[in-house]
């Protein structure tokens, strides 16, 4: 039987923990709102651009732009977008599990965004090419640096494709680890809903109008495709950030609720122990009195 003092001490420490997790929950909730809005606002732009380019890819001539056809190399470049900080539930674990489970073969090089990804991949002794720290909230200029690095790597001809692994934001309680192909241009899912179901695509492909390009197809692609890479990557970072803050908010809310439950149980036990001690004392007094009479 623990003494009342032990229980009091535990109650105090649990209370402290609850206070901290509650504060973290509030901070995450404020950041979450901003990150979710940012991700939602950019989504339609990225989706529309992706849709247009995918339909153009199908009608484009062979070799009009290197981003439309698979690279010459046989290696795969994978960008893993994880978080910098922990305490966000199983977010990073799930993402890495997804990366490892998707059969990428041996010829894989990694680029990471976020410290957790860097740590995990170097622990697994994977081939790390670069890691980019991106602040919170993410700024487009920082992401553009990553985009330029990827494009340079892709154009050197060592790589067949560039994949991005990130957590897709669906809603506050659900985030889906996703691996999408950034290069060559391919349909990507952003924020949960699949904007390309196969049937709709077939119809589009058969009725695809013969576009005129102004000034010329190559020139148009030359300006649009680098923007596409950077823009899509930025949107993916935004999705990942929205997922991170949501997941952290939920994790901290669970922690706070748990602490409150423990607090309740401990208080009950404390009262029981205290009452038992009082009853005991009373018994002793009465017995002593009775013995004296």
């Amino acid at each position: 039987m623990p003494s009342t003092r032990d229980i009091r001490r535990r109650i105090k420490s649990v209370k402290n923990t609850a206070q901290i997790t509650k504060a973290m929950q509030l901070v995450a909730a404020a950041k979450m709102k901003k990150a979710q809005d940012q991700a939602a606002n950019g989504r339609s732009y990225a989706e529309l651009l992706n849709k247009i380019l995918v339909s153009l890819k199908e009608s484009a001539e062979e070799g009009v732009h290197p981003y439309f056809s698979a690279g010459k190399g046989d290696r795969t470049l994978v960008v893993v977008i994880a978080t910098d900080k922990g305490l966000c539930g199983a977010l990073n674990t799930n993402l890495l599990k997804k990366v490892i489970q998707s059969k990428l073969g041996d010829e894989v090089d990694f680029v990471t965004i976020g410290r957790k990804a860097t740590q995990a991949l170097s622990r697994l002794r994977r081939n790390l090419l670069a890691d980019f720290p991106i602040r919170d909230p993410a700024r487009f200029a920082e992401v553009r640096a990553v985009g330029r690095f990827l494009q340079e790597k892709y154009l050197t001809g060592d790589y067949q494709k560039v994949l991005i692994a990130f957590n897709n934001f669906i809603n506050t309680v659900s985030q889906v680890p996703t691996v999408e192909q950034l290069l060559p241009v391919n349909p990507v899912t952003l924020g949960g809903k699949r904007n390309f179901d196969e049937k709709a695509r077939e119809v589009v492909a058969s009725e695809l109008p013969q576009y005129t390009f102004e000034p010329a197809a190559a020139a148009v692609f030359e300006t649009v495709l680098p923007q596409y890479v950077n823009g899509t990557l930025y949107q993916m970072v935004l999705e990942a950030r929205a997922s991170e803050h949501s997941s952290r908010m939920v994790a901290m809310k669970n922690a706070t609720d748990n602490a409150k439950q423990i607090l309740k149980d401990l208080t009950l036990e404390y009262n029981k122990v205290r009452q038992a001690a009082i009853t005991n004392e009373l018994l002793e007094i009465t017995t002593a009195k009775m013995a004296l009479e």
Partner: peptide, 19 residues
């Protein structure tokens, strides 16, 4: 404002991709 000058678009314009 297209790259090669102003473009006016009316319904049933020919399919066009430009910057």
């Amino acid at each position: 404002p297209g790259v090669q000058g102003e473009i006016g678009v009316l319904p049933m314009h020919a399919p066009l991709i430009t910057t």
